[in-house]
């Protein structure tokens, strides 16, 4: 453990706890290798800090926001690279990206919402998938941090998914038809108000489930991984072979979980759109 003022007078266990919390939560510094070992880059917490309608709004760039910018930048570069080398039979990096895009179209979008609707929403689904994937994997590279392990980030993604789902439903059925859809066919009149509330709760529960699932999966994996590392400091050097083995296993599992959660988020958004768009026929 690094000896500094913040750790003075704390037991090893407490220091490990601090270390874990520091790595999974958001913050105003970004650890980068520099002349001084592991001295962080300080981000300005008052960059875009303002009051609006009596609300205290801080839109400054924190560590997770920075990670999202980097993820977006990487995706932009990826898009430009792939677009420049467009070909009938793509090679190298382009073919890898094409495999993912084809997977999203043929295995996610078309089976859940039919061919016609899939054409309309595939761009949104691809964007979500790649963004979540890159954000998930960013936490696994050194000096990176998992932006999707922050509930505000996943809530933002879920709100976007929520808006797209509602928009898809309204575009298909019309605004009035969409709200009429809240009462299923053949429900007795006395039950209709209850059904409206129940359906509305379902509409709110869908993005909530998306948000919590992604957040919890990303945080849980990192906590396990960091706890295994922390175990070395608590239990001594003899435990290193065990924690190293488990640590590598968890790391590989985290790579898989990163892909899986990006896939699940996309798949479920697609499924919810499909329930509204292709459900009535």
């Amino acid at each position: 453990m690094v000896e500094n003022a913040a750790h003075a007078g704390k037991s090893v266990g407490e220091q490990v706890k601090d270390m874990i919390l520091h790595h999974i939560t958001n913050g105003w510094e970004w650890e980068l290798p520099s002349s001084e070992w592991a001295s962080p880059v300080h981000l300005n917490p008052n960059l875009f800090h303002f009051q609006l309608f009596g609300l205290d709004i801080n839109m400054s760039v924190s560590r997770h926001v920075l990670m999202m910018f980097i993820a977006a930048g990487l995706l932009l570069i990826m898009g430009i690279l792939v677009r420049r080398k467009i070909a009938l039979i793509p090679k190298g990096f382009s073919s890898a990206v094409e495999a993912f895009v084809l997977f999203i179209r043929d295995e996610i979008a078309i089976p859940t919402m039919g061919k016609h609707a899939a054409e309309q929403y595939i761009s949104y689904l691809c964007t979500t998938f790649f963004f979540i994937l890159v954000c998930n994997l960013m936490g696994l590279i050194p000096y990176g941090s998992t932006a999707t392990g922050n509930i505000s980030v996943t809530a933002g993604l879920a709100i976007m998914a929520f808006l797209v789902i509602q928009f898809a439903g309204m575009r298909k059925m019309g605004v009035l038809g969409y709200f009429g859809h809240l009462v299923p066919h053949g429900v007795p009149a006395w039950l209709a108000p209850v059904m409206v509330v129940v359906e509305l709760m379902g509409i709110l529960a869908k993005p909530f489930a998306l948000c919590v699932r992604l957040f919890a999966n990303m945080v849980a994996g990192h906590v396990v991984l960091l706890s295994l590392i922390g175990l070395i400091f608590v239990m001594g050097a003899a435990i290193i072979p065990v924690t190293l083995g488990f640590g590598i296993f968890m790391y590989v599992l985290e790579i898989f979980v990163g892909f899986l959660q990006a896939y699940i988020f996309t798949m479920l958004t697609s499924l919810f759109i499909g329930l509204l768009v292709a459900g009535e026929h």
Partner: peptide, 14 residues
Amino acid sequence: IAPYMNIGTMFLGC
């Protein structure tokens, strides 16, 4: 399997 994985969380979410 993906839709089945959603059932539990959806239940909780409601």
